[in-house]
Design a binder for these strands. Structure first.
Lengths: 152, 152
DNA sequence: TTTTATGCAAAGTATTTGCACGGGA
DNA sequence: TCCCGTGCAAATACTTTGCATAAAA
């Protein structure tokens, strides 16, 4: 487990990298550490700035290239918000949905009710003649910490 | 009603523009006609190319500026897909969800079950301490026409 | 006549690519 | 040693802005 007790850990990410034939380098490790230990939605530039504290010589290009690999391996996911979709967050294993704080970018994961969801999708699909293959469900709001911040 | 019998019509859009103090110009009309009569997800460049058939002197910049206004007036909405969020589609009045064809970009609208959705959101919210303010639900699949295209 | 809207060109921003060098395995 | 990964710089793609002209009201 990471120092924060998150659902995922740096060592698991590193194992995954190696399983996929990728080398473990200093710059890559810095990006991995940053993403694996954060539950916040981060842009490539923010990831770059944070990861540079762990590896000063890191270049922004390497951030882009590493994010691409992590996304392919499904360790991170691209997060879509009303005005942007260039930000990323660590992804727990399996299908999940996001609850995102509009103020600070913190993310919670939830699963919904898979059976109910499937039934609902089947209904919409048959009504429209579509074959539905995938779905997105995302909630936006304000996390507990940001609610307190606002009221004080 | 538009010539295609869609949920929306060019004249309604033009009324809205004027209610909001915007002038009705040739370029603007071309973009409005294009968006009001399409149920396909279109990028700014695609809108530009289609609208230019209606007004040759149209510039791409005007497309961007017009889309911005139409989005503010909620006549169109930005559509998010796994790899991009720079495309737009006409929006019916009120809250709605999208079912998008991954092949051709055609869009269907649906409402879900508002009561069930609210209850579900309340449950997720209370569990996490979030105050949920908004949600997105989108389905991706293949429309009837594209299914036929594939099987032949 | 007054003010908004337009198109062009230029600037700005974000992301990707080419390439010689450096470092992991 | 071999080859993947890196950073820099340049190229690309997309979007926004400044400004003089054109057109709506």
């Amino acid at each position: 487990m990471s120092e924060h007790g998150f659902f995922t850990s740096t060592s698991h990410w590193i194992d995954k990298l190696q399983e996929n034939g990728y080398r473990l380098t200093g710059p890559r490790r810095a990006v991995v550490e940053t993403m694996a230990n954060s539950r916040y939605v981060l842009s490539p530039m923010e990831i770059y700035q944070q990861a540079r504290k762990l590896h000063d010589k890191l270049g922004l290009v390497t951030v882009y290239r590493t994010l691409e690999k992590l996304e392919q391996m499904q360790l991170i996911q691209r997060v879509h918000r009303p005005s942007d979709c260039q930000a990323f967050v660590a992804s727990p294993p399996g299908h999940n949905h996001l609850l995102i704080c509009e103020d600070c970018g913190q993310v919670e994961y939830f699963n919904g009710d898979p059976a109910a969801m499937e039934q609902f999708i089947a209904r919409v699909g048959s009504r429209s003649g579509y074959r539905v293959k995938n779905h997105w469900l995302q909630l936006f709001g304000r996390c507990a910490a940001c609610q307190e911040k606002m009221s004080s």
